[in-house]
Simulated assay, not measured.
Amino acid sequence: MIGQVVFGLWVAAVTLGGIYLGQQMAPEPAADGTVAVDHTRYNDFKTDLFAIPYVNETGIVGYVTGRFTVKTIAREEAALGLPLNTVMLDALSRHFYAEADKLAHPDGWSRLRESMQRLREIANETAGREVVADVLIEQLDFFDKNSVRVPGDSRFESSENR
């Protein structure tokens, strides 16, 4: 009998604590009495693994590979005239062709936050509206071409080297 009373008091305490915390987290009303609540719904879109070559005057130097999770605004994504996959592939290609040289050097990895912000801006410019809310890195790597190609494999050598 005492166990049931203790259990009942514990359930009541947890319930009242939950109500109290819920009230503390509720948004405060503005001066005019209205409460601003963000009802924006978001979707997550995962990109396929992509690879973009880093090319300079000597030829291919290496490859940037990556995979991202893109947080999109649901109602804007639904109103898109282009498939989101096309918008993101365009943005990834444009951005990382410009950024590949930075990722080829260790100090280039310190600017990833700004790089993801720029990727979001390019995607929204391509879409013509504010569709992409955030871009999260799942995987991002830079591979030197020599670490990818097998030395001595004639399929990968230029015609001048043969």
Rank of each mutant, 00 (worst) to 15 (best):
V64Y: 05
I60A: 15
N161Q: 02
A104T: 12
G59V: 06
T86F: 09
L84K: 06
L9D: 11
N124T: 02
E157T: 01
V5E: 09
Q23P: 04
H39Y: 14
S159F: 01
L9N: 05
M25K: 01
A30N: 11
E121A: 09
A91N: 00
Y63P: 03
V87C: 01
E57F: 04
Q117C: 01
G62F: 01
A31N: 06
E99Q: 13
S115W: 02
T86N: 08
R120T: 09
D101P: 08
E57P: 03
D38R: 07
A79W: 04
H95P: 02
M116K: 08
L9A: 15
I137C: 11
F45K: 09
N56D: 15
I122T: 07
R120Y: 01
G62M: 08
S147C: 00
P151D: 02
A26K: 03
R118Y: 03
E99N: 04
G62T: 02
R111I: 09
L136T: 12
Q24Y: 08
T126F: 07
I73P: 03
A36N: 13
E130N: 12
E57Q: 12
A98T: 12
F142G: 03
F45D: 00
D134C: 05
E77Y: 04
F96V: 00
I122A: 01
F68H: 12
L16F: 15
I52E: 06
D107C: 05
N85A: 08
D44W: 15
N146K: 14
S115M: 14
P29F: 00
D38L: 04
A36H: 10
G108K: 12
E114K: 14
E114M: 12
Q24M: 13
Q4N: 09
N85Q: 11
A78I: 08
